[in-house]
Amino acid sequence: MSITVRIPTPLRTLTEGEDEVSVEGGNVAQVIDALEAAHPGLKDRLVDDKGVRRFVNLYANDEDIRFLDGLETPLADGDTLSIIPAIAGG
């Protein structure tokens, strides 16, 4: 299950500048754990002990996972998980 994860600009310091990384996982939670293994520090930015941090928007393909099954949202081979940043400035 290879999932493409789109990394927003402010988190690319953790992915050696890469704007997309590929990891394995069958749902969002597994993908986040795989991200953390490959790029330590990412998980803390995305989730806390209550789940996805309130201001973080995760999209499975084009849908906000809040409107799907949250961290349990299933992902299939070839799917894209996007981490969408806040709209900063002005």
């Binding site: 927003p8 402010p10 988190l11 310091t13 930015r45 941090r53 309130r54 201001f55 973080v56 940043p85 806040a86 709209i87 900063a88 400035g89 002005g90």
Partner: peptide, 10 residues
């Protein structure tokens, strides 16, 4: 943090 949710702030 660089990755934040305070819209409008940089």
């Amino acid at each position: 943090q660089p990755f934040h949710g305070l819209e409008g702030l940089k």
